[in-house]
Amino acid sequence: MALHTGEVNLAAAFVRAWHAGAGASNPISDRLSVFGVDALDTYERVLLCAYPEVVRIACTLVSTAVITPVLDIRMSALDRAGVLSRAVADAIGEPENDELRTFTIRVVGHAHRAMLYMYGLRSTRQAKHQLSPLNRALIVAASRQRACLLRHASPRRIPDIAGKVTGAAPKPRVIRKWPIKIDELALS
């Protein structure tokens, strides 16, 4: 996990969402008062006041064992969001709340849309029936759809189903040159 790939930004967004619905007595609120910060409204303030929680959530987000089942589109995004919401709350060390659940539903819904896009990728425009390898399709979909969770799904453990053709997946030498974009829902 690198700092520029979006997982830390997304983890900060999870902390911000959780804190919006948390009670007044928690470690993050205590740090807010100690540092004299009035709100977690920027990425820098979230890192200042909730760095340990952000790091634990980022480790959860890059865990293949956690993310691969969450990205299984054969199951409801609402059910999968509950799994991720509980994992994030466990990483924070506090109970989950409505704001965290709502934000997690948005994140999982966005990732499921990116997964549907991923299933439609083909390897070349000329070979319309040759599927792109799942590992390459995951990376392309993560970049094009700005969904960083897809980079941590195990291509061996996700179901291999084909969807509507949405475009071609470029060759690996092209993909390597792409800049890494943070998640669409992450704090920047």
Rank of each mutant, 00 (worst) to 15 (best):
R86T: 07
I67W: 01
L134M: 13
R144M: 11
A22M: 12
A141M: 08
F14P: 02
R176T: 15
H152S: 15
V70Y: 01
Q126R: 14
K164L: 15
Y43L: 15
S123A: 15
V46I: 09
R122D: 00
S188F: 06
A162L: 04
P170I: 09
T42M: 04
W18K: 03
R156Q: 13
A65H: 10
G82Y: 04
G120M: 07
A142I: 04
E99V: 06
V37C: 13
L121K: 05
L150T: 09
V174P: 01
M75F: 14
V108I: 06
R176Y: 01
V55H: 00
L100A: 11
Y51W: 07
N97C: 08
L149V: 12
E99H: 13
N9G: 14
S25L: 11
V165T: 12
D90C: 02
G82M: 10
T42F: 02
S132W: 01
T166Y: 11
A11H: 00
P133N: 13
G167P: 00
S25G: 08
V66N: 04
S85G: 11
K164I: 13
H112M: 02
A141Y: 01
G120E: 06
R74I: 00
Q130W: 07
D38K: 12
H152V: 15
A22S: 13
L78H: 15
D72Y: 07
A168S: 14
V83R: 04
I161A: 15
I161M: 14
V70W: 03
D72K: 10
N9C: 10
I158C: 14
L116N: 03
L3A: 15
G93Q: 13
L149I: 09
A58I: 07
R136W: 07
V8T: 12
S123Y: 13
D160A: 14
L40G: 04
S76N: 04
L185P: 10
R45M: 08
R31A: 14
P95H: 08
I175S: 00
V34C: 01
D79Q: 14
T5R: 00
L84M: 11
Y119F: 10
R56V: 04
E184P: 02
S132M: 14
E7Q: 10
P179Y: 01
V83G: 02
V8H: 05
L61D: 03
V37W: 07
P170N: 10
R146H: 13
S29P: 05
E96P: 06
H4R: 11
P155G: 14
S143F: 09
G120N: 06
M115H: 05
D90I: 01
R31Q: 12
L47P: 05
A169V: 04
L47Y: 01
G6L: 05
L10R: 01
V66E: 09
A127Q: 03
L10S: 07
I182G: 12
T102E: 11
S85T: 07
P155Q: 08
P52L: 04
I139A: 12
R31P: 05
A91S: 15
A24R: 10
R56P: 00
S29A: 15
N135T: 15
V83A: 07
A65V: 10
G163W: 06
R157D: 13
P159F: 13
S123I: 15
V140T: 09
T166M: 12
I180C: 02
A168I: 01
S33V: 12
P69A: 06
S123W: 13
A168M: 09
A11P: 03
P52G: 06
A81R: 03
A12P: 03
A169S: 09
